[in-house]
């Protein structure tokens, strides 16, 4: 039997009736939203179930939506079933004031560095992570640079003008 998105969706809805929402299949990739407190329950089920068998964490990253009150921060998991070569995407949302997310390190060792990176740039608090410290940015950094309130470009820079790069600027 070939594992399809329909089967995965059916099995998930059977195990977690009514809690998984916002189903979609952009470019054929099954996508859904799970409650933040159930993230590990769902992933453990996806891991353990004999037919689903999602035992590879491809990616784990964060997104910041400053306009979505109460669910400003999102963690996106990409899981891979290596046996049937099928992937899925799971999203959870947490408020920016209290960005607590259960860690995936007990299930996937690969989550260790990915969660450190996501913490580094977005400031998630991965509850239960064995070593939640910055991984890419300098240790002294006191903010989370990928959050939208920080401008993409350095606003203190005055010695370079966009005009010199052929894209507008202050020199007329």
């Amino acid at each position: 039997m070939v594992l399809t998105n329909e089967i995965i969706k059916e099995k998930l809805n059977e195990k977690f009736p009514g809690v998984l929402v916002e189903w979609g299949e952009p470019y054929g990739l099954l996508t859904f939203r799970a409650p933040a407190e159930l993230n590990m329950k769902v992933m453990q089920f996806l891991y353990d179930d004999e037919t689903l068998c999602f035992r590879f964490l491809t990616d784990l990253t964060g997104v910041h939506f400053p306009d979505r009150k109460g669910e400003e921060l999102s963690v996106v998991y990409h899981l891979h079933n290596l046996k049937d070569n099928i992937r899925l995407r799971m999203k959870i949302y947490v408020p920016v004031e209290r960005p607590d997310v259960f860690t995936a390190t007990q299930l996937f060792s690969a989550a260790n560095w990915m969660e450190r990176e996501t913490y580094d740039f977005f400031g998630f608090n991965f509850v239960g992570h064995p070593n939640l410290i910055r991984i890419l940015n300098v240790d002294e950094m006191d903010y989370f640079p990928m959050r939208k309130e920080y401008p993409m470009e350095d606003p203190t820079r005055v010695d370079k003008d966009d005009e010199m790069f052929g894209r507008g600027g202050t020199i007329v």
């Binding site: 640079p145 993409m152 820079r157 790069f165």
Partner: peptide
């Protein structure tokens, strides 16, 4: 650099 000249890092 031409790409990174305004970034934080």
């Amino acid at each position: 650099g031409p790409f990174f000249y305004n970034t934080y890092s």
